[in-house]
Design a protein around this nucleic acid. Sequence first.
RNA 1: GGAGGCGUCGCCUAGUCCGGUCUAUGGCGCCGCACUGCUAAUGCGGUUUGGGUCUUAACGCCCAUCGGGGGUUCAAAUCCCCCCGCCUCCGCCA
Length: 439
Amino acid sequence: MIDPAILRSDPDRIRESQRRRGESVEVVDQLIAADAAKRAAQQHFDELRNQQKVLSKQIGPLQGALKKATDDAARAAAQLEIDALMEKASTLADEVKAADADSDVIAALADALWLQISNLVNLDSPVGGEADFIVIEEVGTPRDFAAEGFEPKDHLDIGEHLDAIDTVRGAKVSGSRFFYLKGIGAQLEIALLNLAMQQAAGNGFIPMITPAIVLPSAMEGTGFLGQAAENVYRLEEDDMYLVGTSEVPLAAYHSDEIIDIEQLPIRYAGWSSCFRREAGSYGKDTRGIIRVHQFDKVEMFVFTTPDDAEAEHARLLRWERDFVEALELPYRVIDVATGDLGSSAARKFDIEAWIPTQGAYREITSTSNTTQFQARRLKIRMREGDKVQPLATLNGTLCAMPRIIVAILENHQQPDGSVVIPQALRPFLGGKTVFTAPA
RNA sequence: GGAGGCGUCGCCUAGUCCGGUCUAUGGCGCCGCACUGCUAAUGCGGUUUGGGUCUUAACGCCCAUCGGGGGUUCAAAUCCCCCCGCCUCCGCCA
């Protein structure tokens, strides 16, 4: 959630953000009313509760005096006094109970509205929908296969030729959008994992292997139960969720904690399986492994100060580019438009790799500055002297396996169906330079 | 899955049997001040978090917070119920 103080001091800023996102503006006005009502109800309760405590504290000592009293007259007098107070206290107790119940209902309403407000967009983000991104830079030159004299095959043809990818049996066992990585394919993923983790560790990231099933609080805290909820697998029996990214367990790792500012930034590189229902994507990318229900990913996640967040965001993008460049893939960087940010991000940069058989750039990484939005929901704060305030969190893809594998196979394929291995990966594949079909 | 024990404001800990004197004890750590040639030691004071209110601000005051939720009561860390987590033992198991 965003800073509640902004709702009172500068609601127009929130309205403008919602407008740029193409999300509800009137929810802001509902929230202003609900927020005021919440505070009023709380105040009413606080007052009554205070009266009740005052009364209670008078009754206590009187009870003691009553026990100690020796003569009947004193006992009767004390009893009389107690009875009078008790009567008042009794009606007050009912009022307190009612005020408490009221306050709970009103607070729940306000809290529910808060969850509908997305993060404040960065004013530098291009305004618009999915197609309104800005291309920041194109790097590398797509190969000219015509000049080389052959027609490029798509990643699935190559993967099947190398016996590296098996989507047919994936579908047989688990249904559509599931696949096996086999032989060379499995080795390739492991090599990519090692390269990614080596790079991340070199940049100060702590390697992490995270849970892939989390409680609702973690899912909600990271903002995945809003509009994105339809893409999340839920375990009905246990009321738990399969994560779509290790961003979730990494962000929630420090939930309810206060971190000394001296320890920031804290950087984690998380490795986990990711699960996505891909609801609403029927018919899209049905061939191959570009869009699948389960895949593995190395995710970078950073806890830092709000002041440092933008600079860290630039660093995350740089590290993502380093990785893609190490794999010798042509790519471009885009500045994602406000309507396509997701609820948590204030700003988002995607890297898209060139996919020869599609003649298009396709997303392979995404890095978001979620400012204090997730931290506030997850109660992750930093201590600076005697001040405590929510810190900033950021995330970025280092290596989403299927899409990187697609890009490598397609961009580095040879006329004979083999695939040249990028230099950087060779040390993790026993020095092998090329993938060829098994005999 | 079964049996037992436990969960207190950074860490450790008292309090829970028997409700009010808990405004939650003490130690460690940390912060400030004093003393000191410096350090150490010592002394004094402070030190949960969130919300509200007042204020330019600070201070102050009020409410909540003893794993979470519900209940009993004028009053709950304390009594009752449900849930969660941790530990020990047993069973099962990659």
